[in-house]
């Protein structure tokens, strides 16, 4: 798992994260050091080992799919940065024809 170069700007874009040039420089060095350390995992042979997603002996116990009360509209909207007509307002997402 020799890590290819982590391109901080490219990956930050995948995560929808704007970064300053100064941040890119600092993070690049720090993340290279962290990924270099993570390379220690390559010493281990894990052929045939099952991955662990959750550490509990049993999990994903589903509840009955029954209707139940949800948050009232005003409780949902109270934290929205911008709202109008009982809806959350966002910049226009449809291009002009």
């Amino acid at each position: 798992m020799s890590h290819a170069h982590l391109d901080v700007r490219y990956v930050a874009n995948l995560a929808r994260l704007e970064l300053s040039d100064a941040e890119v420089t600092v993070f690049q060095n720090q993340l290279d050091a962290i990924l270099g350390y993570v390379e220690t995992l390559s010493k281990l042979d894990v052929a045939g080992i099952e991955p662990t997603s959750y550490p509990a002996p049993v999990f994903d116990r589903m509840r009955e799919d029954e209707p139940r009360e949800s948050l009232p509209l005003e409780a949902v909207l109270q934290n929205a940065p911008e709202q109008a007509q009982n809806q959350i307002r966002v910049p226009k997402v449809i291009a002009d024809a």
């Binding site: 930050a12 995948l14 995560a15 970064l19 962290i34 990924l35």
Partner: peptide, 10 residues
């Protein structure tokens, strides 16, 4: 938080 988001996304 930014560092970990970038690392995790990678």
């Amino acid at each position: 938080v930014k560092r970990r988001i970038i690392l995790g996304t990678y």
